[in-house]
Amino acid sequence: MNPRFETLHFETPNLLLRPRTLEHFEACIAMDLDPLVTRYVPGPWDGGRAHRDFVRSRIERDFGESCGYWAIFAKSAPDEFLGWVSFIPYDAVGPELEMGWRLVQRAWGRGIASEAAGRIVEHAFLGAGVERIVADAHALNEASLGVARKLGFRFVRDGEFEGLPSKFFEMSRADFVARGR
Rank of each mutant, 00 (worst) to 15 (best):
P89G: 08
S76M: 09
F125E: 00
L16R: 12
K167A: 09
H123T: 05
V134H: 05
D79K: 12
F125H: 00
R61H: 12
F5P: 07
R110V: 01
R149G: 10
E131P: 01
G83Y: 04
G159D: 05
D32M: 03
F153K: 01
E60P: 06
R173Y: 05
G48P: 09
G118W: 01
V147K: 00
A30H: 05
G83R: 08
A143C: 11
E80T: 14
T7H: 12
A174C: 08
D32T: 15
G47T: 04
E170L: 05
D158S: 13
H9M: 12
F169K: 07
A139D: 08
S114H: 01
R173A: 14
A74T: 15
I112D: 02
L22E: 09
D175K: 11
A71S: 15
F10H: 13
A77I: 09
R173V: 04
C67I: 01
V134C: 12
E65Y: 04
E60N: 13
A113K: 02
D175E: 04
R4E: 05
G47M: 06
T21E: 10
A137Q: 03
L126N: 08
G64M: 06
S57A: 15
E160H: 13
G48T: 09
D53H: 06
H24V: 02
L33G: 07
G109I: 07
P42C: 06
A124D: 00
E96L: 03
P19I: 03
D62A: 11
V37H: 06
L97V: 07
W108M: 11
W101N: 01
H138M: 07
E80C: 12
W84N: 14
M99N: 04
A116Q: 04
E65A: 12
C67A: 13
F73H: 07
L22P: 02
G43I: 14
D32K: 04
V37P: 06
G47W: 02
T7Q: 14
A116D: 03
T12K: 11
R4M: 10
R4P: 00
G83D: 05
G146T: 13
I133C: 07
I59C: 00
I72G: 06
L15K: 03
A74W: 10
P13T: 06
F73E: 09
E162N: 10
W101V: 02
H138I: 12
V121C: 10
G180C: 12
W108S: 03
N14R: 15
A27Y: 01
P89T: 08
R110F: 00
H9S: 13
E160S: 10
E98D: 10
I29A: 02
E26V: 02
G109M: 08
G64L: 03
A116K: 01
Y90C: 08
R56K: 11
L36I: 11
N2S: 15
L22M: 15
P3D: 10
L22D: 09
P95F: 02
G94P: 06
G163K: 02
D91G: 03
G64F: 00
V134Q: 04
V41Y: 04
E23K: 12
R52G: 01
G127K: 04
A178R: 13
E160K: 13
V134L: 07
